[in-house]
């Protein structure tokens, strides 16, 4: 065991090594004349560009106060009132045509990268839901005594774990999706659910098998049917044990979901690619995208650790 001042020295060394690596990368990027422009990434995260407020028909500006601009319409309809604007474009008495900018508001809106992050989170959570159902069913089938159930679950898990996710996404979108007339998002959710379900099946199986057989015997000896014993005795205990691997699986799912960008779902990865074609800040955008994934996964592992602590009450 190292004494504590020595430990701090080692911590300091690790920080130095990381800083050194980052410095090397920076110098290397200078060598290829890369000019870093982080400011160009910002609009893709939060969009601060003013929003145009446009006229809905032809007319005249009849009143401009600090609070509102009133546009009286030629058609005689109710006047259009622009409230809470930040910057007036038209002045009192101006003739306005339909579609003209009358005023602007400054607003913070989520940029494409945050939209992408939201899509990633959404597709991951929906897929996790279906994957859990599938995985639970397949896991229970794996341990059932019925050979048909065993074989089906075995084939499912083997097939899915033995083929690349990218290929599965293509099959789901171009083949199954075409037959069932699925939109991109559904095809993506299906591919991710089926893929993750196979891994969850194994987690469920090993979780259930880790519960001592005496638990099932005790439950059955009290007159519980197999399904009742499963739901009230075995699964609640298995759930607690499977929480850490399930959290790992969710984090994998979030990362795997980046592959659905190949079927043109605008998730975080696709949003990153689109951002680069707009601002050419390749390095900055990919580093930002990686950072956003990292924030999401770190947040989730933190939440899961909290849940684990709560469930530890009966230990």
């Amino acid at each position: 065991m190292l004494t504590s001042p020595r430990r701090w020295l080692w911590h300091g060394l690790s920080v130095l090594i990381i800083a050194g690596l980052m410095g090397t990368l920076y110098i290397a990027s200078k060598q290829i004349n890369y000019s870093w422009q982080w400011a160009r990434v910002l609009p893709y995260i939060v969009n601060t560009a003013p929003l145009d407020l446009r006229a809905s028909g032809n007319g005249t500006i009849t009143e401009v106060t600090p609070d509102a601009i009133t546009l009286t319409l030629d058609s005689g309809d109710k006047p259009q009132v622009f409230k809470s604007y930040d910057q007036a474009v038209a002045a009192q008495g101006d003739l306005i045509f339909e579609g003209d900018v009358v005023a602007r508001t400054v607003q913070w809106r989520a940029g494409p990268l945050l939209h992408g992050l939201w899509v990633t989170l959404k597709i991951s959570v929906i897929s996790l839901f279906f994957a859990t159902l599938l995985g639970l069913a397949a896991g229970l089938m794996r341990i059932s005594s019925n050979p048909a159930c065993q074989n089906l679950a075995f084939a499912y898990v083997g097939l899915i774990r033995g083929t690349p996710l990218l290929v599965q996404i293509f099959i789901m979108y171009f083949f199954v999706g075409t037959m069932l007339n699925l939109d991109r998002f559904s095809a993506g959710v299906m591919a991710l659910s089926i893929f993750t379900g196979a891994y969850i099946a194994e987690i469920v199986r090993s979780g259930i098998q880790s519960i001592s057989p005496g638990q099932m015997e005790a439950a059955r000896s009290l007159g519980m049917s197999y399904p009742k014993a499963m739901t009230h005795v075995i699964l609640p205990q298995a759930f607690k044990r499977t929480l850490p691997p399930m959290a790992g699986q969710l984090i994998n799912l979030i990362k795997d979901s980046s592959l659905v960008s190949v079927i043109a779902i605008t998730d975080l990865t696709k949003a990153g690619r689109e951002a680069i074609s707009g601002n050419f800040a390749t390095f900055e955008v990919w580093i930002t995208v990686a950072g956003l994934y990292l924030i999401l996964t770190t947040l989730l592992s933190w939440v899961v650790r909290r849940i684990e602590k709560r469930l530890a009450a009966s230990d």
Binding site: S212, G214, Q215, E217, A218, A219, R220, S221, L222, G223, M224, S225, V233, P236, Q237, K240, S314, D315
Partner: peptide, 22 residues
């Protein structure tokens, strides 16, 4: 068999209490 087992209580060497229940 479930109905029959309701009428036959069993106590095990290793207790087999349900650890997630009080």
């Amino acid at each position: 068999i479930n109905k029959l087992r309701e009428r036959v209580g069993m106590v095990f060497q290793s207790f087999n209490l349900f650890p997630h229940k009080t």
